[in-house]
Simulated assay, not measured.
Amino acid sequence: MWAELIQEVRVAQTGVQILFGFLLTVVFQPKYGRLADTDQAIYIVTVVMGACATGALVGPVSLHRLVSGHRVKPRAVRLASRMTLVGLALLLATMTSSLLLILRVATHDGYVPYLVTAVVAWYVLCWYALPLWARRRNRGGSGD
């Protein structure tokens, strides 16, 4: 299970690291100083969540490196799996607040919360609901 988990983490890491990198550049743009206080607060929360998501999704790699060869693989896999789930939840929150900020800046229309809600619902469906549904349907199956 360790190899599968690390491969899954690599996919999520790439996305969160690219997003986090872009977020770090926003504060250096001239328009940042003209953002409303609310938008600046959303940005700060987004950057902090992005940093936390990055930490949680890089954590399993560090864990593997530090415990490799110490015969703790079952515990390490469980801990890395938990870190990955936390990282995905933080990535969801980061994506949500990033989308909210971008749409608030791009348009001041009242439909922004509805768009963000629809996208978050899509993420929840793809990231949690469908996988949990598949797991429940396969309870008596092979273990893969």
Score class of each variant (00 low, 15 high):
residue 39 D to S: 13
residue 11 V to W: 10
residue 33 G to R: 15
residue 26 V to F: 11
residue 18 I to E: 04
residue 93 A to Y: 05
residue 80 A to Q: 01
residue 46 T to Y: 13
residue 24 L to Q: 07
residue 13 Q to V: 10
residue 22 F to S: 02
residue 45 V to C: 10
residue 61 V to I: 11
residue 42 I to N: 11
residue 49 M to R: 04
residue 63 L to K: 00
residue 101 L to I: 07
residue 92 L to E: 04
residue 99 L to K: 01
residue 47 V to T: 12
residue 60 P to K: 01
residue 59 G to E: 03
residue 102 I to A: 14
residue 25 T to C: 07
residue 88 L to R: 02
residue 69 G to T: 02
residue 31 K to H: 12
residue 71 R to W: 04
residue 34 R to G: 09
residue 18 I to A: 06
residue 105 V to F: 11
residue 82 R to F: 00
residue 37 D to Q: 15
residue 58 V to Y: 08
residue 105 V to I: 15
residue 99 L to F: 09
residue 48 V to F: 13
residue 75 R to E: 05
residue 25 T to S: 11
residue 28 F to I: 05
residue 18 I to K: 03
residue 52 C to I: 14
residue 75 R to Y: 05
residue 50 G to A: 03
residue 72 V to S: 08
residue 58 V to M: 13
residue 31 K to D: 12
residue 53 A to D: 08
residue 17 Q to F: 13
residue 11 V to L: 15
residue 46 T to E: 11
residue 50 G to H: 06
residue 48 V to D: 03
residue 17 Q to V: 09
residue 56 A to T: 05
residue 30 P to K: 09
residue 27 V to H: 14
residue 83 M to C: 08
residue 95 M to H: 11
residue 65 R to E: 14
residue 31 K to A: 13
residue 51 A to H: 11
residue 71 R to G: 08
residue 73 K to P: 00
residue 62 S to D: 04
residue 38 T to Y: 12
residue 37 D to K: 15
residue 72 V to G: 04
residue 59 G to Y: 12
residue 71 R to V: 00
residue 47 V to F: 14
residue 82 R to G: 00
residue 70 H to L: 13
residue 32 Y to N: 04
residue 86 V to D: 00
residue 89 A to L: 15
residue 99 L to P: 03
residue 68 S to A: 13
residue 88 L to F: 07
residue 97 S to V: 02
residue 73 K to C: 01
residue 22 F to A: 03
residue 19 L to C: 02
residue 12 A to G: 02
residue 48 V to Q: 10
residue 63 L to P: 01
residue 19 L to T: 09
residue 34 R to Q: 14
residue 65 R to N: 06
residue 50 G to V: 06
residue 50 G to N: 06
residue 52 C to D: 06
residue 100 L to Y: 15
residue 25 T to Q: 04
residue 24 L to G: 15
residue 76 A to G: 02
